[in-house]
């Protein structure tokens, strides 16, 4: 479903990704791990289409199409979802209206009529329960005044509403206590089907006890330097990132 080939990306002339390759198929869960500042968020943002990055080389193929020229909204409508490391507060835009607009834009892209209000409210309720997010939050402005945990749950709530084919969750575990972590992980697991795929980006092995990946990749210095099964996360946990530095060729 997703094929990234030899991706080189820079910001303001600074090289961040240097020849990254990754392939993700339907039904798979991939974990990307790596130390801070190594380019994990850059990768997630570039897939989602965030402006400001310069693609020096390489391509990103999603469902057979090179998506690098597509604006972020079209990538979203095509089925890509980014769970933000730092969800943005948008005062004055209510969660409900935001989601209703988003859901209907997705439907329009698929040639469907807007969802009737009643049906939409039902859907909201159902998905709120999935991430145990309080209904009150959805009446508030997007992320405004939400706690760190609420913001992360809200990302998963939005993912549940939009049912993406590829979800990229950027450090959805950071700042969560163990209960919230379980709720978030549980939400992600319930949303998993044989037709969609998930990339979880994380700094710690902890999340992977709850979202069990099929593949673990270690991103270091702008490249994937090691890939393996879920046991790779455990080795990494035990040996630390220093181990990667020693192993990595440069």
């Amino acid at each position: 479903m997703l094929k990234i080939k030899n991706l080189h990306v820079s910001i303001n002339g600074k090289q961040i990704l240097r020849g990254l390759n990754l392939e993700v198929n339907r039904g798979e869960v991939h974990a990307i791990m790596g130390p801070n500042g190594t380019g994990k968020s850059t990768l997630a943002n570039v897939i989602a289409g965030k402006p400001g990055y310069h693609i020096d080389k390489g391509e990103i193929i999603f469902k057979g199409k090179n998506i690098l020229e597509l604006p972020p909204e079209v990538r979203a409508q095509e089925g890509i979802f980014l769970g933000f490391q730092y969800p943005v507060e948008i005062p004055g835009v209510s969660m409900t209206n935001f989601m209703r607009t988003a859901v209907n834009e997705h439907r329009k892209y698929k040639g469907l009529d807007p969802m009737p209000a009643g049906e939409f409210l039902k859907l909201m309720k159902e998905k709120q329960q999935l991430v145990e997010i309080h209904a009150k939050l959805t009446n508030r402005s997007v992320n405004e005044g939400f706690s760190g945990g609420e913001k992360k749950k809200n990302e998963i709530f939005q993912m549940a509403m939009l049912e993406p084919e590829l979800a990229i969750l950027d450090e959805t575990d950071s700042g969560l206590d163990i209960d919230a972590l379980k709720i978030v992980a549980n939400g992600v697991n319930k949303l998993k089907t044989k037709d969609n795929a998930t990339i979880v980006i994380t700094h710690y092995q902890r999340l992977l006890d709850y979202i069990v990946p099929d593949f673990v990749h270690i991103l270091f210095d702008g490249k994937i330097v090691k890939s393996g099964g879920k046991e790779l996360a455990l080795i990494l946990e035990e040996k630390g990132y220093e181990w990667i530095k020693d192993e990595s060729p440069n």
Partner: peptide, 8 residues
């Protein structure tokens, strides 16, 4: 970008 990333 946040809004657009949701398909708007």
């Amino acid at each position: 970008f946040y809004i657009k990333s949701r398909g708007i």
